[in-house]
Simulated scan of single mutants.
Amino acid sequence: MLISPAYAQGIGGAGGADMLTSFLPLILIFVVFYFLLIRPQQKKQKEHKAMLASVRRGDKIVTAGGLIGTVAKVIGDDELSVEIAEGVKVKVARGMVSTVLSKTEPAKGDDKDEKEAKEEAEEPKKD
């Protein structure tokens, strides 16, 4: 007979190395996405959350709707009263503040700032 019989190949013994090389591009794509997309977004979210926590009376803000106004009163943890024109005040959810245009000096009753002022006054000046 001129035709040789064809036999099925057995399962290769190097399956572990083949699995790693086949998943390597997928792992590499995930690492690139993490450093270019996920990590910067988490950092931006953290900065925005800190900015929202530091909003106080007198700050000039821009809301997500585009209104520019001055914080007249901090009503609660998640609500602000914003003066958008003379005598016109609106309530705004704290989460809807997109940016703080200008910060005001802390109030005199703020314990942290009073302690810092006392420490600066007590330190002897070096010439």
Rank of each mutant, 00 (worst) to 15 (best):
M1N: 12
M1E: 11
L2F: 09
L2W: 05
I3K: 08
P5D: 03
Y7T: 10
A8K: 06
G10F: 04
A14D: 14
G15Q: 08
A17N: 14
M19Y: 13
P25C: 05
L26A: 04
I27M: 14
L28D: 10
V32C: 11
Y34P: 01
F35T: 07
F35V: 04
L36Q: 06
L37K: 10
L37W: 03
Q45V: 10
H48C: 05
A50M: 13
M51A: 04
A53Q: 13
A53G: 09
S54H: 11
V55W: 11
R57Y: 00
D59P: 03
K60S: 13
K60L: 08
K60P: 02
K60W: 15
I61S: 02
V62D: 01
G65M: 09
L67W: 01
G69C: 05
K73S: 02
K73N: 07
I75H: 03
G76F: 03
G76K: 06
D77C: 04
L80W: 00
L80H: 06
I84E: 00
V90A: 02
V90E: 03
A93Y: 14
R94L: 04
G95Q: 02
M96Y: 00
S98F: 06
V100S: 00
S102P: 03
K103Y: 15
P106S: 15
A107T: 13
K108H: 01
K112V: 14
D113V: 11
E116G: 07
E119G: 00
E120L: 12
E120C: 01
K125R: 09
